[in-house]
C-alpha cells in the first residue's frame, strides 16, 4: 500500500519565476516526513509537485524527476488525475464540500472512481471515518452537512475523504495551522496511526509538531526574497533537531531566525 518517493534534481517554476531549485530526496514508505522552513521557502510548492497539484496554478511546471517506486510521475503518458488518485492531499484549511453530507464527502472520491454499490460504499465510509478517528462523533449524523462540524472535525473528515480512496501516499499541507491545540493533538495522534499504512509527507510551520510526529525532517530555506527555495538538508528528525549538519538549520531550529 505505501510506496517510496524518489525525487531527483527537481526545479519548480511558476511562469518564468523559479520557486524551488534542485531538490533531491527520498521519502521512505510507512514513515512520516516533515518539511520545515521559513515562509516562502517553497516547501508547500514542492509538496504540491508530489501529486502534480501545482499544475492547477497557472504557469506551474517542473523540471526533474519524481518516481513513485518505479512509476515516473511526470512521464508523458502519466495522467495527473491518476497521480492524484494514488497520492492524496489534505489542505491547510479544512475544505469539506459544503453542499454534501458527511457521508457523501467521504464517498466523493470513491464515486469519482465509479464505486456505486451501496454496501461497498457504506463499508468504506465507516472504515475511513474510523481510520480518521471521527466515526464515534459522527455516526449518528452521517446525513448532516459536513460544514456543520467543528474545524478539527472537518479536517479529520477531509483526512477520511483522502484515505477512503486508499492512496499510496498522503500529503498534508500545514493540516493543523487553522486548528486549536486540542484538535491539533487529535490530528497528530491520527498521523501516528496512519503511518503504519501510508507514506505521509507533512508541511508544518510548527517545529515542535515536526519533532513530535515525524521520522525524518527536511529543512528548506531561501537566500533572499525572490530567490528560489532550496532543500538545505534532510535527515532523521532527532538528528535535525539535535545535531544538524548545516549551520542555517541549527539557526532556524534554535530560533535565531524564521
Amino acid at each position: 500500500m505505501a510506496k517510496r518517493i524518489d525525487v531527483t534534481d527537481l526545479n519548480v517554476y511558476y511562469g518564468s519565476f523559479k520557486a524551488v531549485e534542485g531538490v533531491s530526496m527520498t521519502v521512505e514508505p510507512r514513515s512520516v516526513t516533515a518539511f520545515i522552513g521559513p515562509s516562502g521557502c517553497g516547501k508547500s510548492t514542492f509538496l504540491r509537485t508530489l501529486n502534480r497539484m501545482h499544475e492547477v496554478i497557472p504557469g506551474g511546471r517542473v523540471e526533474g524527476k519524481v518516481m513513485l517506486d518505479d512509476q515516473d510521475l511526470y512521464a508523458p503518458s502519466m495522467d495527473p488525475v491518476t497521480v492524484r488518485r494514488t497520492i492524496g492531499m489534505v489542505f491547510q484549511r479544512p475544505n469539506p464540500f459544503p453542499t454534501m453530507s458527511i457521508y457523501d464527502n467521504v464517498a466523493a472520491g470513491l464515486r469519482l472512481n465509479g464505486v456505486k454499490n451501496k454496501k461497498t460504499l457504506d463499508g468504506i465510509v465507516e472504515s475511513s471515518l474510523k481510520g480518521a478517528n471521527l466515526w464515534t462523533e459522527v455516526k449518528d449524523r452521517l446525513n448532516k452537512p459536513g460544514a456543520g462540524l467543528s474545524g478539527g472535525q472537518q479536517q479529520r473528515l477531509c483526512i477520511a475523504r483522502a484515505i477512503a480512496v486508499q492512496p499510496q501516499v498522503l500529503l498534508m499541507d500545514e493540516p493543523c495551522s487553522a486548528l486549536d491545540p486540542i484538535s491539533t493533538l487529535a490530528i497528530e495522534d491520527l498521523i501516528n496511526e496512519l503511518k503504519s499504512e501510508f507514506t505521509i509527507v507533512i508541511v508544518t510551520h510548527n517545529m515542535q509538531q515536526a519533532a513530535r510526529v515525524s521520522d525524518r525532517t527536511a529543512f528548506f530555506n531561501l537566500k533572499a526574497t525572490g530567490e528560489p527555495g532550496r532543500l538545505i538538508e534532510i535527515d532523521d528528525t532527532t538528528r535535525i533537531f539535535n545535531n544538524p549538519s548545516e549551520q542555517s538549520t541549527e539557526d532556524y531550529i534554535s530560533g535565531r531566525f524564521g
Binding site: N51, M53, V56, V81, N95, P98, A108, N113, V165
Partner: peptide
C-alpha cells in the same frame, strides 16, 4: 479550496465542476 479539494481526490475537470462548482 473546494476546487482543489475535488482535484486532489483525482477528479477530472468535469468531475471537479460537478462536485465543487455546480453545487456551489
Amino acid at each position: 479550496a473546494h476546487k482543489e479539494g475535488a482535484l486532489a481526490l483525482g477528479a477530472t475537470k468535469w468531475e471537479m465542476i460537478r462536485t465543487a462548482v455546480l453545487p456551489f
